[in-house]
Amino acid sequence: MIPLLQAQAPATSFWSEAFNSSELWTKLIITLIVGLVVMVGLLYAPIRARKPIVAFFTFISGAYWVLLYLWPKPIDRQPGEMPLNTVETVSFWLADSNNVVVSFTQILTGFLLGLGIFSLLKIHLTKISKGHKDAFFSIVLLASMGLMIWFGYADWFDRLGERGAMLDNRDNWGFTQYGRDFLFEGLLQQMDAAMFSVIAFYILSAAYRAFRVRSVEATILLSAALLVLLSLMGAVSFVWDENVKAIANGNPFILNFQLTEVAQWIRNTFQTSSIRGIQFGVGLGALAMGLRLWLSLEKPGSGS
């Protein structure tokens, strides 16, 4: 068994070292220190250099994707093959780093989450310390957050271990599992569903208030919505369609007036096309904005 495992161990290189090896940890700590030194160095950056520094990092990150898009991609690349020339060396490297680059956004956003939590804590701790009239609710918030973190991690560690598989079966559950289940399934999931379904009430009151035959536009909106609504009521469209079929008596033209057909026609002809029309504009907007951000053409907070 042991020799087999060794045979499997992937080759190391400058960038990758074996799991738990001292080389890995040394390099890791050096990298971290270098990074922190650079960060401290930034504190002394002259004011004039600030904008270019930010622009530089933005440009480099965007350049990866642009390069990946424009650089000639290798044709018929099979796993394990080596590049034939410099152009291919670059394109192989670009393709292989894809998996690494893709996760950067997630990881950085993850690190920034601490700021969000800090904002939450700050607001609620201030409320509590000042004895604000809603201080009780702030305590509730912090307590439920603490409980969820505790039970969440405790359950996660339990499942990592040997007993992990057994925990699929409720009979083997301990206090931690019941606690997590109560908070997650019993409360969080149910509240998610409850808040989502509140929309049904709002949709009714909004439609009741706003769908009036006031202007041409409102009337068009209203009639299209009503037709689609009717078509969704299986019983209504069933009866309607049966009647149309009876009248049509096989005449294909009249058959088109089946409710399901009409609703389908509205969707295919107008809904899809208007969405498409809007999306072309939105897509161009995003692309143009992307360009401005990537090249740092826009002043931050330029709405002012």
């Binding site: 495992l5 161990a9 738990n20 890995l24 922190l36 690494v100 690190f111 920034l112």
Partner: peptide
């Protein structure tokens, strides 16, 4: 940090450069 070998799965190497993301996050 990589992962150790387990039944049926080969070990993976650790790529230390990922540590650079910490200072960037801290910024």
């Amino acid at each position: 940090v990589g992962t150790p070998a387990e039944t049926g799965a080969a070990a993976t190497n650790g790529m230390f450069a990922y540590a650079l993301l910490i200072p960037f996050g801290l910024m």
